[in-house]
Structures are given as C-alpha cells and as structure tokens.
C-alpha cells in the first residue's frame, strides 16, 4: 500500500495529478494539469468546448496514457493502468454520451457494476453451487438498494434503453456507484436535462456524497449546478489550467469570464 498524501492542513488528498500532459500529433490536448482533490470534496472541472476536460477524464480512467505526468489515487501511482484496473482501484465514471448496457434491464445494469465485489467462478455458476445462489441473491438485493437511492427501483425490470433520458443518466451514476468507488467522475451529468431534472440530480449528488462518503469530480456546463454544489473548480482552456480555487472566486475571475464569453 502506497503512502497516503496529505496537504498542509492535514487533509487527505484522494486524487493528485502531477504535470499531466497528453499530445495527439502536434496538438497538446492537455498541458500541465495539476489537480489536487481532497477526500470528500466535490470538485468541478469546467471550461469551453474542446478545452480537454473529457480528455483529462480519459487519462484518469486509463483510456489514454499521458505523454508525461503522473496520476496518484490515495497516494498510489495509477498512471497507465488499464480502465479495468483503474476501476478496481476505486475510480468509477459516467460518460458524456450515455453508455448503458442498453439490452440489459435497469437492475442488471447495476448488477454488472457489482460483479467484482462478490466472487463467484464460472464453474460455480454453471453448476449452480451454493456460492452462486448466495452471490446472485446479494447482487439482487444490493442492486435494488442502489436503485432505491436514485428513485429507479420501480423501473428495475425495464430495459435500460427504454428509460427516459434523465433516468438513463441517473442509472449510469447508479452503475458507477455499484463498483464501490472512492472517487466518482461525472462527465456532464446534467447535459440535456430540464431544470427540474437538474435539481433532482443535484439533490442525488449531494445525497450520495453524504451517505457513501465519496469524493466527486465532475465536468459540467450548467453553471447553476456548478455554482450550486461544487466547492472547488479548475477551469481548463485549450488544455491548460486557466484558474483554480474556490468556486465563487473562480467564477468571478476576469480571465474565466473572458474564456467563456469572449472579449
């Protein structure tokens, strides 16, 4: 187990990126990004389209290997690990364009997320040995519990693709939570939602953060959501950090306003 990192005030740092860079051909999509996210924090990553926000997520989750720089999760270097291993280490994510298992039911989607937590071999499943039955029962129970948190329990037997858009987004979060993460990455969770749905989503995010004690990093364009729940922000523009700090300070920053609204 790696040494945990602490900041000057003695708070544990869950995620730290050290001079993160990635280059695609001549394009520096992410250039020297240094994030430091404390345990339990709700952190926002914002910036205009094409600023490199999703690319940062893809580096954190192992989809891309950074050209240079390191990623530390609870002090452990996870740079370049595969998406599967990153997930097992404790980072779960959602996607900007929803990626559900569309032909599985809502319940099964969450059960897939749970599958690494209760071991059961192929042999045990095929021959229906006791551990298979026990684990299936536990999967079902825990999946129902998680669905209840997100108000999706009544849709448990629906195919994921038949859910309305807002609920699909929530299901994606539920599935990510099922993998029991320490850090949850949300990629534009409120995209395409109406104000009511956004409000519901904000409540859900606050709720899971409080009840599951997890740290959340989110990308968002909806400023109401960002200013409403994020404690700290990093603003990216053309792959570089434009500003970072407490939400209210950052949003008042003249540079940030210019990047978003133009001169």
């Amino acid at each position: 187990m790696a040494e945990k990192i602490f900041d000057a005030d003695g708070n544990e740092i869950i995620l730290k990126t050290d001079h993160l860079c990635i280059q695609f051909g001549g394009l520096k999509a992410v250039n020297d990004v240094n994030l430091e996210i404390k345990k339990g924090e709700l952190y926002g990553l914002i910036g205009p389209n094409g600023a490199g926000k999703t690319t940062v997520f893809n580096i954190l989750t192992g989809v891309y290997k950074p050209t240079s720089g390191r990623v530390y999760l609870s002090g452990e270097d996870i740079t370049g690990k595969s998406p599967m291993d990153v997930n097992k280490k404790g980072i779960a994510r959602t996607f900007q364009n929803i990626r559900l298992f569309s032909n599985l039911t809502v319940l099964e989607n969450v059960m897939v997320g749970l599958s690494n937590q209760i071991p059961c071999s192929v042999f045990e499943s095929v021959f229906r040995l006791p551990r298979h039955k026990k684990s299936e029962k536990e999967y079902t129970e825990r999946a129902h519990e998680l669905l209840k948190v997100f108000g999706l329990d009544e849709f448990a037997d629906y195919l994921a693709s038949n859910l309305p858009y807002g609920k699909q987004r929530k299901l994606e979060i539920a599935r990510a939570m099922a993998t029991n993460p320490t850090l949850l990455l949300l990629d534009e969770p409120a995209a395409g939602m109406n104000p009511n749905e956004t409000q519901e989503l904000m409540d859900d995010i606050t709720f899971i953060r409080k009840n599951f004690g997890i740290t959340i990093l989110l990308i968002e364009h909806d400023m109401k959501l960002v200013s409403g729940i994020c404690e700290k922000l990093t603003v990216l523009n053309f792959g570089t950090e434009l500003a970072k700090g407490n939400t209210s300070d950052v949003l008042a920053d003249a540079e940030v306003v210019r990047a978003y609204l133009g001169e």
């Binding site: 989809v63 599967m84 997930n87 559900l100 032909n103 599985l104 099964e108 897939v112």
Partner: peptide, 16 residues
C-alpha cells in the same frame, strides 16, 4: 452481454 452492448462502459465498470 455488457461487453456486447457497450465495450467501453464494460471496461470502465471493471469487467475483464
């Protein structure tokens, strides 16, 4: 079935 429906998501959900 998860791999069939969405390989990228399956990977991110910790499926081998």
């Amino acid at each position: 079935k998860a791999i069939r429906d969405n390989e990228i998501a399956a990977r991110a959900t910790g499926i081998n």
